[in-house]
Amino acid sequence: MKREEVVVPGEPLCIIEEFFPGKGTKASNDGSIYSIYVGKPSFDFKKREVLVSPFKKVENVRKGEHVVAEVKDLQDKIAVVQIIAKPNSGPLKYRRTAVVVSKKGEPLDNAIGIGDIIIALVSNILNGMYTLDIYAPSCGVILAMCSYCRATLLLKGNSLVCSRCGRKESRRITHDYGNINKLFQIMGWGV
């Protein structure tokens, strides 16, 4: 039996001459490298780098990840959405506001509508502001709402038709459009 090593914030790990400070560590003015998390330290002897992997990770959305979002507001070239989940890790505890920017020359209201659930790629993060791309592969609207009566739009052939009022609308849809099971699976609700 062996007890795993645990380091706490501020705990010195080594000195700067021995290893480079990697993820989860910082170098102090006196030349020592200390941990910034409660975590497990590891020493990479090939790269001469010391790392600390935290036991509890702060919920984060990173550039290049796919996310599920709900459209909150829509203008010609920009839409405000709320990131609600990550496909592999389920719903987020804390929702984040992000923007979807239209492709050059294409109005966004042909691609998404208010209340729609979209799958998008995080294309940029700048100072805590998230920009999403719905034109990336396997991205787009997974569930759309009629802009008049808020009923679900059903996919009939190549067009989206409102299940209540019969209105036809256009969206940039994913190949999984209307697959509620898939959406539930992404959200981690199970079916």
């Binding site: 914030p9 501020g10 989860g24 036991f55």
Partner: peptide, 11 residues
Amino acid sequence: LADAGIPMSDL
């Protein structure tokens, strides 16, 4: 704060 996984320079 340390328990929440927030990066800190010291306790």
